[in-house]
Design a protein around this nucleic acid. Structure first.
Lengths: 201, 201, 201, 201
DNA sequence: AATGAATGAGCTTTCATTCAT
DNA sequence: TATGAATGAAAGCTCATTCAT
């Protein structure tokens, strides 16, 4: 007989993550104490450790959870789209994230995740994987466009990818920490700029 | 008469900042204790408070110091340059920062500065000023190019500025926290892309 | 279910108060550190904060505890007594306190409580309540005696009350801080003096 | 050749005491830091130690200074007065002190002096002397009255003295720390009470 | 599974005082 | 004599985490 159904445990886990996320994004990961989380989540001091073995693990779980969401952006795109439209839609969704306050919150939390010293192998590997997956999505679209002749071939793919990643990250910082939310106009300009360059004359 | 000259005091202050900077960039601002700084700077517990009244003040002094460096980038550009060359050189210097390990370190520290909750008016105002100055530099160049007919007039200045800022920020994150330093090729691609778009066909 | 019963917690709380009281009265409130209390009470640094949220709260709890003791002096007097006997017995009990070393200790602690700057509203209000309750007890007896014709009516009640309060306070200082304990003879003289004056010739 | 004239040194010493007194009475001895005194007295951190070897010494000097003032109360009384008048005038002057804000301030400082743990022989001896001198003044008047037949002889001198001392102390506490200043009416009542008792029927 | 008392290293900061200049 | 940088012990308190119940 299981102590508690696995399902119920998952639900509570999710709930704690929800609470932690809200607090982290409001007060910051560092400034949020386990006490705060426990109080809001209405769980006892010892109890929380049944679900997460440390405060760090809560943050890492949040990262994990968001990553899995993000990963679906590419998957959900129609594979029959032209590369032009695919990049356009990808960026629209990716940058559109920062139009919603909810996701600006995320950006704030993510920033502190990246600030974490990569002491432990666990953190280092998560950072690494996160970077790689992130990069592969973009690289995939660019290469696809080049291969089918839609995008100019005389560009340095890595450089383009590097810049797009940078822009997405940086807009996250602008939106999350500097409180300058993105608008549809901003998004459109970014898309235009990339496509204009990639399609060349 | 003062025990040590004002100049020597300045030197010691600088030295403490240097030490703090090194530690902040390695272990993170939060994880670095005053004790760590004292130990490395070889100063006593009370002594450090002669130079800085709090740990926060050390961080803010570092921000200040870096900002003043950055501010000169625009000032040092030859005002007789074409806007094309001015933007080109500005970006080259601005992004070139992230080629030096020293400045990637800075990026890591800056990230934690931006993560700081804007509790105190002091922090809030520094953040605000920093953002504004940053933005004005870029806006100035873009507007200059448009006004003299070098850059296309049918673009949304704010969007372009927003994106350039985002990119610079984001590349800071890539370089500082994700350990993906920028190369000359990356820089050139970024410049090409912006100019290509701004100059239109 | 709680780890330890509420009752046991109360007992431990009391014990900590006991220890703190002993130390405060020996070394003084200011000179006694939390560390001293922890060491003697055999509790850990964090543990004590389960019972008291600050050093000040310990002192205030001691004040509270003593006040509740003092408050019962008047309550316990037989209400059918003549005012003469009532004042006599009240003073005997009230001043008799300073015959016991335990209570002289208290006087020392109380002195530091009164020396506390009334910064916080909490402290200010406790001081105020303490003074008022104290005064009301005495005023009640004097007025009672005047109303039933036992005490002279041509005296200034407030002045008499002021003086009795002063004397009690001052004897506390003599006993607690100047190490001059009161004797039964002293007490009798004080009672005689007040009654002699109040009953007139 | 003297470094600085002894006279000038005395003047500065006095000035520092003045400043310290003001601060002690406002913020309390404990809460006042050497820094505060230095700042207000416009003297350097090292400089103050030329005049006083420690913070404690400043307090003790203040006590000393006040004591010498107090001592003159009895000296200044006309020795040809009746004991009735002498006690009356003595008490009027002694308690009158607490009508002036300046002297209530003193009472606050004195309280913290008496709170000082009598660790060092120096403090212990000052406390002792202070108590003795204080007591002798009062005892002298009472005995004088008894010896010349003005006061009743069937009273316990020590008890009467004890009580008068207590009253004076306690009124200091009421005035200094409890913010209940004395009035002329209060003083008159106290004098009446003592004389009424001492002159007997 | 859940509780919350207990832990103790650690935090930043303040303080009276010293001493090289 | 006078300065103020430097000292380092000690302060009160917080924290993530553990573990007996």
């Amino acid at each position: 007989m299981p102590k508690i159904s696995e399902e119920k445990k998952q639900i509570k886990r999710e709930y704690i993550l929800e609470v932690a996320f809200e607090l982290f994004s409001q007060k910051g990961y560092t400034a949020t104490g386990m006490r705060d989380i426990m109080k809001v989540a209405n769980i006892s001091k010892g109890g929380i450790y049944v679900y997460f073995k440390s405060k760090t693990e809560i943050l890492l779980s949040l990262v994990e959870r968001f990553d899995s969401k993000r990963h679906y952006i590419l998957d959900q795109l129609d594979k029959s789209l032209s590369s032009h439209d695919m990049l356009s839609q990808y960026l629209r969704k990716r940058l559109g994230i920062f139009k919603q306050e909810e996701n600006c919150k995320w950006s704030r939390v993510a920033l502190e995740f990246w600030s974490l010293p990569s002491n432990t192998p666990e953190i280092a590997s998560i950072k690494d994987r996160r970077y790689r997956e992130y990069k592969d999505d973009i690289k995939y679209i660019i290469n696809r466009g080049i291969n089918c002749g839609e995008f100019r071939s005389n560009c340095d793919v890595d450089s383009v990818v590097y810049q797009i990643m940078g822009t997405i990250n940086g807009i996250g910082v602008l939106a999350g920490s500097m409180n300058r939310v993105i608008t549809d106009k901003h998004i459109q300009t970014a898309i235009d700029m990339y496509l204009y360059y990639l399609k060349g004359e």
